[in-house]
Amino acid sequence: MNGFNINISASAAWAPGLDDAAAWRAWPGKTLPLDDGSAPDIRFIDALLRRRLGRLSRMALHVANRVAAEWISLPTVFASRHGELSRTVSMLHALAAETSPSPAAFSLSVHNSAAGIFSIVRGDHAPSTALAAGDETLLWALLDATARLTDDPDSAILLVYADEPLATEYQSYSSASASAHALALLLRPGEGIHLEWTENRVRAPTPEPLSLTLLTHLLGQREKLTWHGERLSVDIHA
């Protein structure tokens, strides 16, 4: 048996059309609203620092701030399946057209873009990791976060997960169509939710990412949920 427990003491989620907790409470059982391309409010970040951020980082930073605003310092895990791939695509287009790629896009094309900006904005030097692990990204980000908690009851870590649709050029390489959404979880020592994984030999992958299945569980809709990935199945239960 492979599993671990997590204790979520606060959470925030954002997707186009799902701005606040009330909207999310009415969401389970439905698909996400149509993506209108909108991005969330990140006015807690200075305008000069904010201007270059793309939607993925804006979503990640928005939910991160909603959970972490009252904490002076928090270690973080920033996780995303595809990260800032859209910036890489724009730079590849520039190179293909034999023009210079944007230095600003280059500077924010790395996987820890949002993590870096979050640290700068908050003046917080706490350790941070940036993870990607295919369709299992959230599972291993949760494990990383949980493993970094200590026995100290004051111990806490912020996990931020964000994804957005793949660029058209890459869509045929991915089985799942990512939709724009972000989730922030404040994890504390203790038990609350049990996550368990087994090899998935037979089931077709669940059409939604693990993050949305976990959100459905958090919103109290179903006591036990199973998500099937390309390689693993994950049980989520109390």
């Binding site: 000069l48 270059r52 023009t99 210079s100 944007s102 230095p103 600003a104 500077s107």
Partner: peptide, 17 residues
């Protein structure tokens, strides 16, 4: 304006273009 070194590079690319 408070621009930084990345702005300098970006501006260089834009002026060239």
């Amino acid at each position: 304006l408070g621009l930084d070194s990345i702005d300098a590079l970006e501006l260089g690319v834009a002026l060239k273009k």
